[in-house]
Design a protein around this nucleic acid. Structure first.
Lengths: 342, 342
DNA sequence: TGAATTTTGATAGACGTCTATCAAAATCCG
DNA sequence: CGGATTTTGATAGACGTCTATCAAAATTCA
């Protein structure tokens, strides 16, 4: 009922503690035959090294760096706050977290920051990636210098990074389509989409998923040409208000980027009696309020807190050379309505 | 940047290690004045005891017992599996978990089991409670004998237990109403409810929330008299099939208990062209399939895995006398549709 | 075979905390 | 004040692992 220790391993393998230690920490100077004897003992005993004790002994510290985009984006600011809070908690597990900010969507700045990191002072990096070749190369270099790298929220497709913690955005778009299609049933017309910019990977993916579902399952609704709000509330408000006024046939709105405040303001300007179903992304102060007062019907959300925790966990297991550096539970697309608000 | 240790506390307070230790572990034989000197040092340094080291030293083990209802209920069996898996993981944190099963909804059996637990061999209990006085008393006795007790999934209202890990069922019912109301818009008629038994606390709460929302926000829909399926799939199927056949005006179904298979079977028997929106509870093999083939529209879910983790965490922090034995994040009502299935 | 080299073992001290014991110091009480 | 009692300090060893060093044993190679 007690866990086996290195002493047990040594005894079973018929070798000394020193040798077990050499094997466990892959130091050299152990014959292959001896090593495999130790391995066998480890397997047969089901030995798992006590990481708490190991860290205590070697004063191991995990030095992580989170790289987040700067700017007004409310979701990113929440993410930043979550990182700060988890950093405080992580201190208890000998994990030190530093946060860096780069201008949003600026691949060069990101790449430069990555290049400027000191591999002697940092063990792992979690970054909200901007998808560009220059970034990819910088990541490759960083990894070559022994730093673990994972992406957070926004992925960098390809083999450079060692993991991604975030939601599946196509799936998110499909879910939005599925909800909005059902909400609008019985009121045939047009559905408007508001995106940040189609240059952003996650926005493009959401749009894709949304259109897939709407076209195949709710063909009675037409999809209006998408608005580009550039994640700016004023622009979103103006464009959407104009479109709603111009087209009385719009029965649903899907906003797949930032700028929830703008959406809410545009809706507030509608004449009473006009019913428009609305689905947006990310639970923020504004989308929350809009759910409560009934102007939004549903909010799709990614749990940034859990994403941060997942990134920390993933980096730590990568640094520990743990067997399964996969997330226990993937980050899912969460649906919020007025009554299941957290 | 390194955390202060008891050595630092001793130095700052101007006392010996022994004294600091006596204060930290609230042993007696320390003058009040000395104690407060040590406390001050702890505060000023922001000292937090290294729990890993402490556990290592004292070979502390958290011996927990999970009490779950026996029977066919698919959700409960998943819960059981989650407990088993988390138990394996918890071993690494010197936590030993034992699972006990009692006949479902049998307050006497539960109370008896609680009474039979040996306080010498168990530090904490997490139980799916049956709400009855005899249970309440058994819990009170157990706590008096020094065992921590929390409830899981199904609460025991009142001051006896030290915490509850589970969802808010009224909120779940409201969410169901909000979804189903929107799904059925444009098709006015009647909505049928299938419960397990109104004697169960959580079922009653769900019904309450559901009716609240439907009455106030979707008054165009009538609420049909609820069916009692007793969580049995055959009974659910028969009752629901009969009702659907008898009343062509039924446009929506809310099943708030177990028996998803029965609901799916009843729907499969409907003539093609008849559209009924369906919301049920708990993501299981059957509700999952039904979402995928389109016969269910949405599933409300409680993340049993996270509930188990939450209960373990809560018990451990109670046993450690940690400051904030509250959950980081409460367990929320999750909404699943076909496209955001995990 | 003997020397050089590699592999292995033994030992000690550390990480931060706990427990136990014994002695020294401070306080109390009559 | 002096003895009894309480409070405090010092020390040692433990938990499971790591690191380092030195010596002993086994292996290699000429």
């Amino acid at each position: 009922m007690t866990r086996p220790t290195i002493h047990d391993v040594a005894r079973v393998a018929g070798v000394s503690l020193s040798t077990v230690d050499r094997v466990l920490n892959s130091r050299n100077g152990v014959r292959a035959k001896t090593r495999s004897r130790v391995m066998e003992a480890i397997d047969s005993l089901g030995f798992e090294r006590n990481i708490a004790a190991a860290n205590l002994s070697r004063k191991r510290r995990y030095r992580l760096c989170f790289i987040l985009p700067d700017g007004q984006n409310s979701f990113m600011r929440t993410l930043e706050k979550d990182v700060a809070e988890e950093a405080a908690a992580a201190l208890r597990d000998s994990t030190v977290i530093e946060t860096r900010k780069v201008p949003a969507f600026d691949a060069n700045a990101l790449a430069e920051l990555l290049r400027s990191l000191d591999p002697e002072a940092i063990d792992g990096v979690a970054m909200v990636a901007t998808d560009a070749t220059i970034v990819r190369i910088a990541v490759r270099e960083l990894r070559a210098r022994g730093v673990a790298v994972v992406t957070l929220v926004s992925d960098l497709p390809g083999p450079e990074k060692q993991g991604f913690v975030g939601i599946d955005n196509v799936q998110a778009g499909r879910t939005a389509g599925s909800l909005l299609g059902r909400f609008c049933r019985g009121r045939t017309g047009r559905v408007a989409m508001v995106s940040g910019s189609m240059l952003l990977r996650d926005h493009a993916e959401r749009r894709l998923g949304f259109e897939q579902v709407l076209r195949t399952e709710f063909p009675e609704q037409e999809i209006a040409a998408p608005l580009e709000g550039l994640d700016d509330k004023d622009r979103v408000r103006d464009q959407l208000a104009e479109r709603l006024a111009a087209d009385p046939g719009i029965v649903g709105v899907y906003s797949l980027g930032a700028g929830n405040r703008g959406v809410a303001e545009a809706l507030a300007g509608l004449p009473p009696g006009r019913e428009v179903s609305v689905v947006v992304h990310e639970l923020t102060r504004f989308s929350r309020e809009a759910l409560l007062d009934g102007s939004f019907d549903a909010v799709l959300h990614q749990n940034s807190r859990r994403e941060v925790q997942g990134a920390i966990q993933l980096l730590r297991s990568l640094l520990d050379d743990q067997p399964q550096p996969a997330l226990d539970e993937p980050i899912g697309v969460e649906i919020y309505m007025r009554d299941n608000l957290p």
